[in-house]
Amino acid sequence: MRTFNVTGFREVEVVGQHSHTGQPCPREQARVGISLQEVCCSCEIQLLDSKYLSSKAFQSHVLGDAMSALDHALETAFFLMTNDEIARVVVCLSGKLVNVSQDVSVTCIAHLRIEENSRPVYELTPADKLGIAMKYKNMGVSLYKEGLLHKQTLAFFVFSDAVKWLCMIPPDEDKDFLQEVMTVKMQCYNNIALFHLQHHNYNLCVVATTVVLNVDERNVKALYRRAVASTEMQNYEPAVEDLKAALLLDPNSKLLKRQQEVIKRKQKDLTDKYAVAMKKMFS
């Protein structure tokens, strides 16, 4: 019996050998039945909001549709299992990811049965891939709207999955969907940028918003978020330029005007500090 040790959302270590049986692994969006036995959890199971832990044996689920951190981690192991395999799964997650006060560990014996495997990627049409991306994007929006930090963290991964599927649509194949593909992709990147901004990953926020602005230079959300990130990194000149561009598009925005005042105040504080340092140096 193999053991899958999962830490975080997508970090997994596989222990033990698995003899070749010719059985397939489930693909993303496959419909599977899962039976979990000998479940041992370091906290109350109800706190983990897990559809897998609360389901009956071999109840049908679609892999990739996890709406909780624990289920997302469990699916990391399920994707590596083969049809009808029984394996031990050990999940260790930071308490912040599941909204509890301490780190969480869950151990169980999982039996996976593939009810209906999804088609290989090369068999999917652009419309199929766009449909999956839209599904993930809408899941991410639903998670984010809950307003809970651990749900927003999961939403970041879901938005990233949506972008992954959109990037699998070759440009020469998406002519009928080009505008829709680009719209959904830019929405996802904007949401990813917001996540990075809220988690103080300012460089990554700038990267994500720049992807949006390279396609749509009139995107006010991206301009604003890049300006805020640049401000936090004390890159005031590009921040000012982004805000000017955003205000031309939305001149009545109180949010943009407020950020302008933030930059002016920070620039003044920085100038005052330099003045004091120079005075001490030459006094």
Rank of each mutant, 00 (worst) to 15 (best):
P251S: 13
C41T: 07
V91A: 00
Q46D: 13
D250C: 12
Q198D: 14
T209N: 12
E232C: 14
S142C: 08
N235E: 15
F9D: 03
L93Q: 08
S94V: 01
M67H: 15
V6P: 00
L255R: 15
T107L: 01
M81Q: 05
C92T: 06
F177N: 05
D216I: 09
I45P: 07
D172P: 10
E237I: 15
A239H: 12
A110T: 05
Q198P: 10
F157C: 01
K96Y: 01
Q234Y: 15
D176R: 02
Y202S: 08
A193I: 03
L124T: 00
L197D: 05
Y236V: 09
Q152M: 09
Q102E: 15
E115R: 12
D84L: 08
E237M: 15
R226W: 14
Y136R: 08
S253W: 13
F58T: 00
L148C: 08
N138R: 08
E217G: 04
P120L: 01
V6G: 00
S68Q: 10
A222M: 07
K257T: 11
E75Y: 00
V206Y: 07
H111S: 13
F4T: 00
K280I: 05
Q17C: 04
N201P: 05
M182C: 11
D216F: 14
Q29E: 14
A162T: 08
L270R: 14
Q260S: 08
